[in-house]
Amino acid sequence: MSALQPSSFSVLRARGIAKTYPSGDRTLAVLTGVDFALAAGETVSVRGESGSGKSTLLNILAGLDRPDRGELFWGTEAAHDLSLGELTARRSRFLGMVFQSYYLIPELDAFANVLLGARMLGGVGAAERARATALLRRVGLAERGHHLPAQLSGGERQRVAVARALMNRPAVILADEPTGNLDERTGDEVIGLLLEVCAEEKAALVLVTHNPAHAKKTSRQLVLKNGQMGYG
């Protein structure tokens, strides 16, 4: 399977993705025809210089942003034909996201933050509570469930964010520089944990990172350069 040759068995596929941004009186072409495919359970890293369009690509793959042209498939569904509202409705079931700045809700404790994804899907019962508890235990925070984000360290907050992303059993996890705010050792621990739990949950992972060591831990390493995707 190749990033440049999308497969019909891919859980996430993008073909010919292009995106430009206005920059003063010019137009800046950030992505100029990116092809990308991700198999179920696969882990892929995307590296690139600052401003190379990694986060833009991730936002487009997540359905948060629209490409100027190109096609996007979530499983077999043509996501490029869906409105932003329809994408929003499907996103919570299809994918989970992990951000550099964690983005935990400060008023909710760790357990409630993890549970929020399930709550947004419509209901929280015993099964959802049990899963949130299990996920917190899995990321090593079984005893910290009732701590607010402000009472957690950066690494712990990112672990909560990982658990939250996995709560709804998504097919894909998109992680946008998840170690950017962490020290090297904590970052290594978080990446190790992220890869392990994704494997356990059979979730595919797209990891955007600057760190070559972290990138090497994924099954495929891609590089975004001059608006095009290539092998690292």
């Binding site: 997540a62 948060l64 509202g85 409705a89 919570s92 079931r93 951000f99 899907l121």
Partner: peptide, 8 residues
Amino acid sequence: LLGAMGGR
């Protein structure tokens, strides 16, 4: 974030 998590 709420939007990214599927909040309309």
